[in-house]
Each structure stands twice: as C-alpha cells, then as structure tokens.
Design a protein around this nucleic acid. Structure first.
Lengths: 334, 334
DNA sequence: TTGTAAGCGTTATCAC
DNA sequence: GTGATAACGCTTACAA
C-alpha cells in the first residue's frame, strides 16, 4: 500500500494524496476527507524511508545517552519520551558505552540519519570542545554545563553540581560532622565528578577544614558495586569518619551496605548523603538523604529549548535548574 | 557524498562501489581496496533510507518494551543491546505504555519500518491471540510463555512463573510461616501476575492451607509506590501475617518500607520475599530474598533464537529458563 | 569483473 | 486545487 495505490483508489493524484497526508493547505475539503477516510480504512502508513530519502533528513530527535547504568538518565529519558510523544516528535535513542566519545558518535549518527536536533544525556566537556565543531544542528546537553564552550547551537541544562554538592557537604558539617569521607566519580575524566568534588572542597574550606584526599576520597564510575567497593576500601583504611558523601545515590546505596557489612549502622554510626534523588531512595530503610535534581524540569527545559531552537532558530541558552536538599533518615546530627 | 561521488572519484561504476560496500563477492581485489580506501578517507556512510527503501525492509530488529517502569526490562534490554551490538544487528527500541496493546503497536511499526525480526519484552496473551496473526516475521516473546498460542513464527523464553512463585512460597512455608500476605500483580489483566498468583496457591494447597484472598492479597501494577500502598492496606486490615511475598522486587522494596513505617521489622517481625533478582537487591539492608530470574540467559536465548529464525528459518521454540531462589536476609525461619 | 539503468515511495516543482 | 514528473541514494537484474 503506497500513496500511488491510495491515489488510484480515490481517483486523486499522488501529489494531492501527499498533501493531505502531510496536512498541507490548498487541498479541497472533499479531497481531504475522501483521502483521509481511504487512508484510515486501509491502515495506510507513509513509508518513512522514502519520505526521509526525499527530504534529506529525518524528522526525529537523536538522543545520545552516555552510559546505560545511570539510573538518573533512565528517569530523565522517561520524561523526555513522554514530552516528545506529546508533541509527536519521534525520538531515536542511542545508548553508548560511558568510555566512548559521545560527540564523535553523534557526528556519525548525524551523517547517517540527519536528525532535526540532538539531545545529549551526559557528556564530557573535553569531547565537546574537540569534536562538536562539526555538528551544526540544534543541540542540548543535559546534566552538564556547556556555557563555557561557546557553541552557538549548543544549549545546556543541568544542576549546578558544584553548588549542590557544596550544599550537601555543608549540611553534614552543619550537623556537626567534621570527618567526612567522599565516594565520588572519576574527577580526572568526568567534569561532573570534578565539579562535585570541588563543591565538597568549597564546603570544607568554608569551614576551614583540611581534607586528607588519600584516605578519605575514592573516585569511581557510578554503580552500586563501585560504591560498595570504594566504601569498603575507605573502611579498611580505618573508619575514622562519621559521615560519608556519595556523589550518586546508587553509590550511597552501595556505601550503606558496605558500612553495614563493616559493622557500622547508618545513621547512628555514620551518616550517608547521596546525590540525584532517585525515587527509590524514598523507600529505602533508612530513607536516603540526598540532593534531589529536578529531573522533570530538566527534561521539560531541554525539550522546550531544543524545539524552539529548531522551530524558531532561538539562540543557545544555558540553564541551571534548582536542586533540593532532602535531609532524611540516613543522616543525623552529632 | 554518495556512492555516485565515490564511483566518480575512484573511476569505478556505482554498482561496483555498492558491491564493495556491501562485502559482496565478484569484485576484484584492486577495486575493493581502492574503493574501501576512498570510502574511509571521505568518511562515507551509506544512506540507510535509500538502502532500506530499495531493499523494502530495514535490517534492524524491533524491540517492543511494554512499560517503562519495569526494572527487569531495563536489565534485560541492556544485555540484549550488548548481544546485538556484538553481531552488528541494529536495534530499534520502542517503549510503550503498559496499558496499550503491544501487538497492535508492533503491527503498525512493522508496516512502517519492516524490521527483520521482532522482540517483545513483556506482553499479554490476550493481545497476542487477537492481533498477532497479522505479523509474519520472526518474533520472540520474552518473559511470557507463548507455547499455547501456536503461532509458527513466535518463539518465547521466560521463567516458569508459576513454578517459581510456588518455590518462593514453599520456601516461606518451609521456614515455618503459615500466615503469608501476597502483594501481587493485577491477575485479571496480566498473565504473568496470574501465573505467579497460581503458583502461590499451588504452594499453599500442597501444605493444605487456605488463603483468605480478601484480607491477604493485593493485586497492583508493579512499582515501589504500589508495593508500599498495597502493603499499607494489608497492614491496616490488621497485620496478622509473619511473611509477605511480593511478586516483584520493586514491590518488595515498597513493602519493606511500609512494614517499617507500620512499626514492623524485617525479617524479625515479618519476612519478605521478592521476585526478579534485581542487582539492587544485593545491596539493600536487609539483602532481599528473592527469585532470581536468569536475565542474562533469557537475553542470550531470545537473541539467538530470533537470529536463527531469521537466518536459517528455524522453527519457533518455547523455553523456560531456570530460576534460582536466593534466600538472603529479608526472610527468616520462625 | 564491471557498468548501465530501472525502480523503491515519497516530496516538490511545475504546469494546468 | 490538482496532476505529471523529476529527483532523493541505493540495490540489482541484465548486458557487456
């Protein structure tokens, strides 16, 4: 079933059928209704290959997700999919390994499918500054700040990681903790991880405290398992900390388990603070204290910004969405 | 950059270029290397729209995921994506709302993109028996048994839900529990949920026990929140149970929190058993006792079966993958 | 082994 | 308003 068949069936020409199917004006109401009915009847579907071949580009948004394991990305993606569906924007989601270059991947996929726009879930400043120049379609980087990069077609929306992790640390300091271990990300290879680390340092500094990085910091790829292992290592060095900040909820969960296995109770012996605000955290025992990133807002803003860049040629913008500190059961004052 | 350009550039005809790019035989070694080099140099990419338009089908596998919330599907999908990548099979993943008809959706998408094969993550027997007849490409239903349906092009691979949940219940009975509450799925609308319910009944029957469904069973859509709510309802009816079986780990997690909020300790006051074996469960305090579905095996089998159906015209098969009962910290004997 | 050319289903440019 | 018709980039007979 092609538009040719539909044309024959209705007695109109293919051009008219095409116009109707694409909701274009200058078609008589008669033609429109006749053709629409016929299309309905036969369950007709435009062939997207032919359409895109002709149009020289897809009408889809390409979403490049860096790393499959990141639970927050899943949540974000869920919102994005819902929003895109509402405005009938087809989404093409590409998951890629965290260790690969997401921008190079995007460049390749752009050549291949010519999307309308690009949404990056996670990304490394490094890769953007070296490879993004060959991308010329509207793009939004989510969860990282791209304002320093200065690309005219690259917006960004994210949490102010530095401020947020500073707030998390300050909360612990406020609660009386002075010896705080940190299970963070690899700050050498991830900007986000570096910023969260620096936020911690800001907080410590503002309290005039020193930080023994060698014995109190571990930088690992975010995962339950790595959170568990890193915490175990910190414990094995002799647990002299009363609080632990994990730069991701999944790591906090691993950390709590490791503490427990090491004979420590949370929060009685050690307070634990996470980062992300995964829904899961509300159901844990103890409920996880954490920095809640406004995932829904980030999703909405990124989709809206991308659409206005595409449709209205709006300029790139860089937005920090507010975060919330959820002080719940896994932290206590001492 | 098209194959025409490449042809001009190398002095060969488009046909030869096409042959080389598709790894076909009967091309001289000279031509092959010259063209390959030129393609490399210019970063050439075949236009997949043109290719698929010509070939009248995509070379991708369509994966239809029923419900975004199911954590086990995420895990399954992760494996499937890895496996597909290994054999260079493009995957097109379509997430759809749990409440919609996944088979109708697949029919529509098949018309649109003509995939090589179809992978269903989750599905309802009902929908398959009413709508699957119009699908004629190799398909595999994962996490549900399709053997009763008798479609020649529909394989299935799943856990024997009835046996597995029976095993879970029997373990609790074995541990001495006689009053067991069940937080299950909607057995009226989901075959999986019904089977898990029936497995429970099998176990109770084998112990000669009655079941007060009204006061001891809740059937809800799997989620943390619903697990929490359902358990709260059961508690409010007067918690006279010493054990609780949740038909999904996410519900078990919600249940544990609800029990805790109701003043019950797990496992001291109430034992809790989950179903799925999510990685997360190993890090919880208490570690979740659960039925571990062999997600990796399910992924491997479904991809392998689909490929052999596609490539060798292998007949449909129906496989139960073994499960494991992980008796960990959230259950105890009384 | 290679080249020529038809045609996949659509859109868009013309004429009418 | 409408209808021919020429692309879009590719694969694949069929010819050479």
């Amino acid at each position: 079933m092609t538009i040719k068949d539909l044309a024959k069936k209705t007695g109109y020409g293919v051009a008219t059928v095409s116009r109707v199917l694409n909701g274009q004006p200058s078609v008589s109401e008669t033609a429109r209704s006749v053709i629409l009915r016929a299309a309905e009847e036969s369950g007709f579907q435009l062939n997207s290959n032919a359409k895109q071949l002709k149009q020289q580009r897809s009408n889809a948004i390409l979403v490049v997700v860096k790393g499959r394991a990141n639970e927050m990305f899943s949540e974000l993606l869920e919102y994005i999919q819902t929003l895109a569906a509402q405005v009938h924007l087809p989404l093409h989601v590409d998951y890629m390994d965290e260790s690969l270059n997401e921008v190079q991947r995007a460049v390749q996929l752009c050549r291949e499918m010519k999307p309308l726009g690009l949404l990056f879930l996670g990304g490394d400043e490094q890769n953007f500054s070296s490879d993004f120049h060959s991308i010329d379609i509207p793009s939004v980087l989510v969860t990282n700040d791209a304002s320093k990069l200065g690309f005219p077609n690259l917006s960004s929306v994210c949490t102010n990681d530095r401020l947020a992790s500073r707030a998390a640390m300050e909360k612990m300091l406020e609660l009386g903790h002075r010896s705080i271990a940190i299970v963070g990300g690899c700050k050498e290879i991830s900007t986000t991880s570096l910023l969260r680390y620096e936020g911690c340092m800001d907080a410590l500094r503002s309290y005039g405290l020193d930080f023994d990085e060698k014995n109190s910091y571990r930088g690992v790829i975010f995962s339950y398992e790595n959170g568990y292992r890193a915490t175990k290592e910190l414990i094995d060095k002799g647990c002299n900390f009363t609080a632990l900040f994990a730069a991701a909820d999944v790591m906090a969960i691993g950390a709590i388990r490791a503490l427990r296995d090491g004979g420590y109770r949370v929060p009685e012996d050690v307070s634990v603070m996470g980062f992300d605000g995964l829904p899961l955290g509300s159901y844990l025992v103890p409920q996880l204290s954490t920095i809640r990133q406004s995932v829904a807002d980030m999703a909405k803003l990124s989709v809206d910004m991308l659409i206005s860049q595409i449709r209205d040629g709006a300029p790139a913008r860089h937005i920090f969405v507010p975060f919330t500190l959820w002080q719940r059961e896994s932290t206590r004052s001492i």
